[in-house]
Amino acid sequence: MHETCTIADSRATITASRRISPDTSVITLACPEIAGAARPGNFVNVRVSSSTQPLLRRPFSIHNAENGQIELMVKEIGCGTELFCRTEPGTELMVLGPLGNSFSEPSGTFSTAVLVSGGIGTAPMRFLEKAMTAAGKKSINLIGGRSQKELLSDNLSNCRFSTDDGSCGVKGTVVDLLDAEISAIAAEGRVKIFGCGPTPMLKALASYCRQHSLACEVSLESVMGCGFGICYGCSVEIANPEGGTRTILLCREGPVIDGALMV
């Protein structure tokens, strides 16, 4: 995991906003400083309104970064995300980033990256897949959701799906899907798992990877205030390698942690 050192609070213009599902949009913002410094796994904190309602910024993992622009995959889950999805292209917003650490360098000793995501957890996977491809690694996306309409696979390749209701792909969780696929994938070379999604899914994923001795990194989510380490609101408990647990601020020491540290 890598720490980010250059953070900018940029005035960014929305250049595009497109719906990819009934409640999810991919929003493109021109912010060259952030796009240039961003690594897969980083996030940004967006001030979706210049007023004080809603007050706090909203954190989003970076879906893609290229040509001086970043893309964010935004699911409407409350007033802030609804406002952001309704904001017209051409509007300027303050965007703070890149924040947090990132997934490990794709130059590791594996040949296949298995990107396991659930729901809006798919958001960082496009950027990660691009980095893997650039480093000559193969990527496979395992994507889970409650039903077909919750599956997000925007611009991802090599996707396999699971749904709780069986409306698409394997019926079951994305960890069931991983279990069904892993022997075939692992037969082709060394594997590393990268996960992002709801905490219960990541716990199940990390536990599966521990049992099967698979290297695994997960990107966690938490309520966030500032996003850069001054509000202490995003504390998360993780395992301490020396025993017991310790509390980290997810915006500084995360969002990516070694799956072995999930508690």
Binding site: L55, C231, Y232, S235, R246, T247
Partner: peptide, 10 residues
């Protein structure tokens, strides 16, 4: 270490 999460709400 402070209180356990969740610690903030808008």
């Amino acid at each position: 270490t402070g209180n356990p999460p969740r610690r903030i709400a808008e």
